[in-house]
Amino acid sequence: MFKKTRYLSLAILFVFMLCLVGCGQNAEQAVKKTDVILATTTSTQDSGLLDELIPVFEEKTGYKIKTIAVGTGAALAMGEKGEADVLLTHAPADEQKLVEAGLVTNYQLVMHNDFVIVGPADDPAGIKGTATAAEALKKIKESNSLFVSRGDDSGTHKMEKKLWEAAGITPEVGATYQETGQGMGQTLIVAEQNKGYTLTDRGTYLAQKKNLTLEIMVEGEKSLLNIYHVMQVNPEKFSEDIAGKMNTEGAKAFVDFLVSAEAQEIIGNFGVDTYGEPLFYPDAGKSEDELGK
């Protein structure tokens, strides 16, 4: 006896699906040519840098940047799958693989800052002033002090793994090695609360500093450089289906903008007012080998 209602509800459901699809398509048609999907690491968003750069770019070009801030691993994976148009990441070794595979083009050095090892002020492992990060990690391990890791395959996590390798240690999750699986900001908070050491990019550390008692323990080593590159995803490597949805011109415009004198100046001045030092050093046109000299 309730057949009729069943049909009715199915009809409503169907109409609604159509509405949703309709909305989506309209929205897509209206914004198709202007939207550029930028997959990037969390540090560029959490430091506030992108909030300075993107409005200038949008104003100049009329493109609309959709920033998806994830770890560098995830951002590169989005590029590999063609889900993003342009990438801004900080794991040169992994980026190189995409460049070699032809998945990304127009690969440009944008800026750098550096990684630092921070830890509780009383420094239980006694690593303050240690010459190399690898040595510091050895001391942390030997003194059974806590190290808090990102554990999320981000650029920072990739760097951390490299440093452990240099120290000849394979860390195992346990009482003295925790993985948060979260962004740098959250991981710093965990390290702060659990009185642990962690590896962080200087920008996020400075931005979070007002909430932290953690202090910088190790810094300045060349291998701790944190280098950011921008690159556009190459539509030729994808099926027409996916490539058709990419915004290659927009991606190119964004790459060109980041290495332009205007953007480089914004990057160089960013954070000076608040922290007394820049959070990032502009590097457009330089080669990676020139950095840190």
Binding site: L20, V21, C23, G24, Q25, A27, E28, K32, I37, K66, I68, K81, G82, E83, D241, I242, K245, M246
Partner: peptide
Amino acid sequence: LWRSGPFGSLGIIYTPTAMII
């Protein structure tokens, strides 16, 4: 909803419509 997904052609990932769904 991803570009590579079955409904990628709708182009609604990272829009309010996707969130509503």
